[in-house]
Simulated assay, not measured.
Amino acid sequence: MINQEQLNAIKERVAKATPGPWLVEESRYEGRFNAASADENYDLPACLMGIEDAEFVTHSREDVPALVAEVEYLRGMLRDTRKIVRQKVNEIKTLQNACRNHKAKQEALVTGNEQLRETLCFYGDLSKYVIIAHMNKETDLAVDLGEKARQALGGKAHE
């Protein structure tokens, strides 16, 4: 991976290079080619090279700046993506905490409901009122005989 220092050095070399586009011209030497600037204001020394090298050199003037721009673009995208991922991770952690809190509250409600159900079952049990009936006392319990508790349980006193 190219670090920023290397990238800056490439950009500096690109800035100092003869402006493109460049051309490949056939040399007076058989099988050799010269690279030259298409701009008549710049004199490039004739370089003797093979066709593959000449093609590489002539394309490098456009390719290198394009690659540098692409690297910088992708780094920006990566930086933005990392920022978004960090935000989403924080959102997920917040949601996980909310779910844990909700689950704890739900478990507390279930426990509370179980306790209330046990209490209603106790008060809905008609056999508990036999003693009150023998005592011949008129209390709310004696009059109700657990009816409200049985209604709260859906008409059932025991399960």
Rank of each mutant, 00 (worst) to 15 (best):
Q87R: 07
N41C: 01
T58C: 04
I84R: 15
I92E: 08
Y73D: 14
P21D: 04
E62L: 13
Y29S: 04
R32T: 01
R32W: 09
N41F: 03
D80C: 08
A69G: 04
G50D: 13
V57H: 09
V57W: 14
M49G: 06
P65A: 06
I92M: 09
P21E: 02
E30C: 08
A46L: 14
D63K: 05
A98H: 03
K93Q: 07
R82L: 12
T81F: 04
S27R: 04
A98M: 04
E30I: 06
E30H: 09
G76A: 09
S60F: 02
L95F: 02
Q87L: 07
E52L: 12
K88V: 14
I51G: 01
D53N: 15
V85N: 09
E62T: 13
R79L: 10
F33K: 01
K83Y: 02
L74P: 06
Q87N: 14
A54Y: 14
E72G: 11
S27Y: 01
A36I: 11
V89P: 00
E55P: 02
K88F: 10
D53L: 09
H59Q: 10
G76L: 03
E30Q: 08
I84A: 14
E40T: 10
R61K: 12
E26N: 07
E26V: 13
I84L: 13
V89Q: 12
V89L: 12
F56S: 12
A38K: 15
M77P: 02
H102Y: 03
V85L: 13
I84Q: 06
